[in-house]
Amino acid sequence: MPLFKRNPFGHILFLKKWLIRIFGLISHGRYRRFNNLHIEGSEILRDLPDNNVLFISNHQTYFADVAAMFHVFNAALKGRVDNIKNIGYIWNPKLNIYFVAAGETMRAGLLPKIFAYAGSVSIDRTWRSKGENVNRQVKMSDVSNIGKALNDGWVITFPQGTTTPFKPIRRGTAHIIKKHKPIVIPIVIDGFRRSFDKKGLVIKKRNVLQSMVIKPPLEIDYENEEIADIVTKIEYAIEQHPSFLKVISVDEYAKQEEELNKKRDFWS
């Protein structure tokens, strides 16, 4: 690889590789030592093409979710099965992994700007800006950049556009799917909200069982399905449809917590 080869966004791949290596080494313990990341379905990743793959996921922190996915994706491509042991996989990472993020988040300080260089496709949210609700037009350059990222590689997006659970799916994701016809891989995560602060930079609690379930590709009729139908499929796939909300008894909750605590005791 030429030393100053760039990706479609002008980022120098040599520099991007080193950023991923460094942040991979720093963050690895957050999913292996302080807390435990339980992974299911990583074998699906090895059968995917090199580009035009869209990962859709629920969202719990600004950065820890994406960092975990970078670990899991690269580990799986290096032959790991549902684990991120032996961090050697990060030495030669997949460089065409991107994640969609709010531009104001990625511009808020030096560290987010560095994260952005590692793979962000930054967009201006049409419904939220600087903590205020807004209503503005979609920037066509944002749509174009997501398409550019899909043409080059894999793209991670959080279609709710927020870390608050059970918020509506943004229709823009369905439009992207209709337009670019990517392979759509749902991912469901849990435990990140309990173990990290909202930004996903500070470990808030230890011994938390984090989980990441990678599901088979969604079956989508790109030509005939309506936007609303695709939105509903996304809601169910990432387990954010209102039907997943349920009220349980105190006894059932206590039983579930006891079972989870047994799983969390991963040092024994």
Rank of each mutant, 00 (worst) to 15 (best):
E104F: 03
P186S: 10
I87M: 13
A64N: 03
G29F: 07
I187G: 00
I44A: 03
D190C: 06
R194Q: 14
N52T: 08
D221A: 04
K233A: 04
G103H: 10
A228V: 09
S141E: 09
K139Y: 05
N133C: 06
A76L: 12
I177M: 06
I203E: 02
V100S: 00
H11G: 00
G103P: 01
R136C: 01
V81K: 15
N86S: 09
Q160P: 02
H180F: 15
E132R: 15
Y98W: 10
S211L: 02
H28A: 11
I230P: 04
I185Q: 10
V208A: 00
D251Q: 14
K179W: 05
I97P: 00
P242C: 06
K246S: 12
A254Y: 05
I22F: 13
V138Q: 08
T232Y: 05
F55E: 05
I238M: 08
V53I: 11
F73E: 02
N52R: 11
T164H: 13
N224V: 01
F244I: 07
D221L: 04
L95I: 03
F192I: 13
G200D: 12
G191W: 13
Q240C: 08
R171S: 15
K204N: 12
A76S: 15
I26N: 03
V81T: 15
D124G: 07
P159W: 07
G200I: 05
A174G: 04
F99Q: 02
I234V: 08
R171K: 15
F158K: 02
W267C: 11
F158T: 05
G161Y: 11
P8M: 05
Q210H: 00
V66Q: 05
L218C: 06
E226C: 01
I90L: 08
D265I: 13
N207I: 10
K198I: 13
T162I: 12
N96E: 03
V213Y: 08
E257W: 10
N224F: 10
R80E: 14
K255R: 14
S243G: 03
P165E: 10
V121S: 07
E257A: 07
K85L: 10
W267G: 02
P217W: 06
Y31L: 10
G29Q: 08
I169D: 04
N135C: 11
H175W: 13
R125A: 08
I84D: 09
K233W: 11
T164L: 14
K205Q: 14
W91I: 09
K198W: 10
V202N: 07
D221F: 05
K78H: 15
A108L: 12
R170P: 01
K94N: 09
N35F: 05
H38M: 13
N96G: 02
R46S: 15
E40V: 15
F9G: 00
H28M: 01
V184P: 08
F23H: 00
Y236F: 14
F70K: 01
G153Q: 04
Q256S: 10
V121H: 07
E225I: 12
I146R: 01
M140D: 09
G153V: 07
E132K: 15
A108T: 09
Q240H: 06
N83A: 02
